[in-house]
Design a protein around this nucleic acid. Sequence first.
RNA 1: GCCGCGGUGGCGGAAUCGGUAGACGCGUAGGUCUCAAAAACCUAUGAGACUCAAAUCUCGUGUGGGUUCGAUUCCCACCCGCGGCACCA
Length: 864
Amino acid sequence: MSVSPSTSGLAYEPQNIEPKWQLLWEKADLFQNTPAQLTATSTQKNTAGRPSQKLFHLFAFAYPSGSGLHVGHVESMTALDILSRFQRMQGKQVYFPVGWDAFGLPAENYAIKTGVPPAKTTHDAIKTFQTQIKRLGISYDWANEIATNHPEYYKWTQWLFLQLYQKGLAYKGVGMVNWCPSCQTVLANEQVVNGQCERCSTDVIQKELNQWYFKITAYQDELISGLETVDWPNATKQQQLNWIGKKAGINIAYQVIDRAGQPLDSGETITCFTTRPDTNFGATFLVLAPEHTFAKKVAAGELAAAGVTSDQAQKVAVYLDSAKKKTELERQQEGRQKSGVFTGAYAINQLNNRKLPVYISDFVLGNFGTGAVVGVPGHDLRDFEFATQFGIEIIRVVKGPDGDISPIIKPNQVQEDAGVMINSEFLDGLEIMAAKAKIMDHFEAKGWGQRVTTYKLRDWLISRQRYWGAPIPIVYDPEGQAHPVKPEHLPWRLPEDVGFKPTGESPLKSSQEFIARTEKLYGKGWRPEFDTMDTFVDSSWYYLRYCDSRNTQEFASSERMSAWLPADLYLIGPEHIVLHLLYSRFFTKFLRDEGYFKFSEPFQKMRHQGMILGPDGKKMSKSKGNVINPDSIIAEFGADTLRVYEMFMGPLEADKPWDTRAVAGVARFLKRWFKAVTQALATAPTANQKITQSQRKLHQTLKKITEDLTNLKFNTAIAALMEFLNVWEAAPKTDPGFTREELSQIIRLLAPLAPFMAEELWSQWLSAADLTPDSQAPFVHQQSWPEFNPDLAQAEQVTIMVQVNGKIRGQFAVATDQITADEVIKTTAQSLPEIQKWLVDMSGATLPIKKIIYVSGRLVSLVV
RNA sequence: GCCGCGGUGGCGGAAUCGGUAGACGCGUAGGUCUCAAAAACCUAUGAGACUCAAAUCUCGUGUGGGUUCGAUUCCCACCCGCGGCACCA
């Protein structure tokens, strides 16, 4: 192909340059369809003839919202694009795919408001995003673009569901679920924020429903241990660990007793989970969650044998009813105020034969541990609060750190984490950790308890009573029995004849076609599952599909997945730490167990980009009017300026406010660079005899940029380029200037960061020498990365600082090759006149030097 | 309350196997060009003291201690901000 050299002269005009190269790159199919070119990494050669190595750079799937590309998208896309271009120039084979997390609520809510089908809204939004991204010069592999709402994609989402179903890892179950009255759908635990719906901030209520779950808990231990093998930010790993919430403790079974203090004939027991069995001599009561089966039995009047009167049973029933009606938010607003009711029943603590009254309170959670706790009010603040409120005895069994052994009457006396046991018979005198081990052994030996590990992680509720998602591929026979949709019926298509008015029921119920289709394929009286899947199901396996996005036989071939995954770099916002990342890891481990590939973690290296804030330092939002639109920045300054500015703002991971004036500073820098190069091209000598300061700076910069880009330190890389330009522009008029070869390096150096301008300068570089573009590699982005010369990258001389008693008092220069002459340098340092005056006392007498420290190439420290 | 991250000029930030604090950019001030303005370019720019000036000195990386010839960097205690979790037994 031919590339026409520019004739536009010296002025930098991004508005002319950028559309031109965008078009030519597109025509040339640059960097397209990479995964098809896999094959053995060691034999593969790129255009420059160097051995190739594969890299998978993953940008977090974007939701195609109607408001278009956000400057935050620009930040992370640009960072990955720079890295991709940089690595390609270094001979790596880089796969940098693009796709859309296209199912989801906003499009459906828009449909409810306007009647416009979500498919249309989504399609239009994607078009807008595509145009904006191409204008930015992001070198995506568009040939492998995917969208989760496409039947060829969600066919495999459904396939994945069925695989899980066949292995018993997708199941339907009844349970208390989070229900958003506004979105009219259930939510996963992960989608409830402060008792409110993550999307619309409506108070979430609890409902008992029969829903579909994925058994993520089957992998809970591996989800913990796998974190040790990946290169992720520590904070992220920590948060995942907290979410999984693994805890070691013991389940203790307390026998329920009758009025005479004898175990019930039914052998009824209440099992409590505790991590602090060491304090069990201080136990004075038991508390059950309202959902506990024993609580229900009491309410139903089934525990008369335990001495529960009908009056007490009645009170319990009332309490259970009121607890059920409370929203998550009401429960939180009560704060530490505790409600509860005595059941009338007692259990026995076999350690000391103490009778423990059994209470019910909603501060005990039904879904953690066993839903029942043993109350030790002296050493647990919640138990203390409950005991004081209900007048229950408090026993001290741990001595305070100050030796306090007085009765516990104030909350600040409640010793929770350290101390020595007292009032605990055979545990007395032991530190709590030792006591814990000893009593657990005791409980197990007696058969009263059993060591257990509990987890906070719950199974993943994936049913959604919404339209715009992948239908759950399940059909029910006339008896209501669930059956998987047959593989030949996939994709199990999302019907189009639905009403969008929220009714509290799944919108798919309104589809005649959906029901007719089910009856036709499966028989009269058969019904489809009307719920769709949580969109996190779609978006938690997309990186697998990327490897083989046009495969019609499989979700992706094993060969391709093994070749490209795990991803070498995943750049994703910190808001996805518990949801998407945990789910993705679960799917990966499951499919590995199914034998599709061998790796266990999908994302080997992950980093989080920070948030770009408005100029006011606050999160951008339409209501605050502080939103920066990338299109308007491109219109004013060009895409290269936008890219370089966003990378220059600060460290990638940090939140940083937008500074409108600083954008102009970056535009100035690019303009100066363009001018410097175009002017130099006109007079460039073919060879340069003398080594100049500018040359040294060039090679130092080449070295620095290579290091910084490798480490994702884009802001300091750009600062180094600016420094280089400052030195270049300040070079003496007598300097011979950079040679053609050096100018080529200077142009290539900028290519990853400012791809359009670099391409323009490259074409000028070629035409200045009457060269025609290489037909195999006509573009600057196909050239090799400039290597630095280590000799030239070294400074000619270094400044040695001289300290006297730790304070800087002078300095001198030394040739770089002389810095190992320790004795000479130490002597020179002492002989400096400005140092001499610090080496004498008030009377002028020379002070003895006690110690001389020389830090090679940096400083001499004199101690007197 | 628990877990994690952070605190450096007027602003964004740079420098942490301990070794010139403030790179680079923004802003500001003065200047060149211009009838004028913008743009562009040049110079200065942490605070303070002293000086005609040059030079020099003192202070300075959230606070208070410590280790060291030397601390933004390491240790201890605390304060503040941000993110996450939260009546999790």
